[in-house]
């Protein structure tokens, strides 16, 4: 089966992509680029960087820009998936959804309307196990947005030590960041032919609610 992966460039969609590749042909990536962090459905920071990630993966990218409101986001997703079906003949969509029934319901309905299979290989996974699995696969992950975590985390690499600290704080924060506590960017993973190198960035916002804006990045040899 040919599938597309709903791809934000963060740890969950990259892990979902890795799992999808074990069984299916991933014909394209689909990225929604919301205009601000108010988006309730999609990952916001640095969506432009997915163009570099897609290049490194050697997988075509469909990117749609959307407004922050739900209707606009879902319409953009519908349009993007329709293009994936039309241009790349995909029969299924793979997402990195973990626990949000709000998000899952909307993805499932859109897939159903487009007669596409919907796969959520991380669904209901223990969040700590997701972080550990990504690290075991050799993912290089940095934090690019925090909301509720200290802004000194921005730009830091996810390590086993940080995962252990998240595990200790389980109950206070969602360790996978599904409550919006943080967003991540994957600089390297096993399917990347080259890794991302950030050469210029800026941190905007205040403590516990800040974003790392990447101003310049490039692909470099691994």
């Amino acid at each position: 089966m040919k599938v597309c992966v709903l791809y934000s460039g963060g740890k969950d969609s990259n892990l979902a992509l890795l799992k999808a590749r074990e069984e299916f042909e991933v014909s394209c990536l689909v990225t929604l680029s919301p205009k601000s962090e108010e988006s309730t459905i999609f990952h916001y920071p640095n969506t432009e960087l997915v163009k570099l990630q897609a290049e490194s993966l050697g997988i075509p990218l469909i990117m749609e820009t959307c407004s922050d409101d739900e209707r606009s986001s879902l319409k953009a997703l519908y349009d993007a998936l329709r293009k994936a079906k039309e241009f790349y003949r995909v029969e299924g969509v793979v997402t990195g959804a973990i626990r949000s029934t709000y998000q899952a319901t909307r993805f499932q309905k859109i897939c159903d309307n487009l007669e596409l299979w919907c796969f959520n290989p991380l669904w209901l996974r223990d969040e700590i196990s997701i972080l550990n699995e990504a690290l075991e696969f050799g993912f290089e992950i940095i934090f690019v947005r925090v909301a509720g975590l200290d802004k000194s985390m921005l730009g830091k690499k996810l390590t086993k030590d940080i995962v252990r600290k998240f595990a200790e704080r389980h109950g206070y924060i969602n360790p996978a960041g599904e409550g919006g506590e943080y967003e991540t960017l994957v600089l390297d993973m096993p399917l990347f032919k080259k890794k991302l190198k950030i050469s210029e960035s800026e941190i905007v916002g205040k403590d516990y609610d800040a974003t790392m804006i990447v101003k310049r990045a490039e692909l470099v040899e691994k």
């Binding site: 089966m1 799992k19 999808a20 074990e22 069984e23 299916f24 793979v94 299979w117 796969f119 959520n120 290989p121 991380l122 669904w123 209901l124």
Partner: peptide, 8 residues
């Protein structure tokens, strides 16, 4: 039918 669905 598919292993990927078994994950879910």
């Amino acid at each position: 039918k598919y292993s990927l669905s078994e994950e879910e």
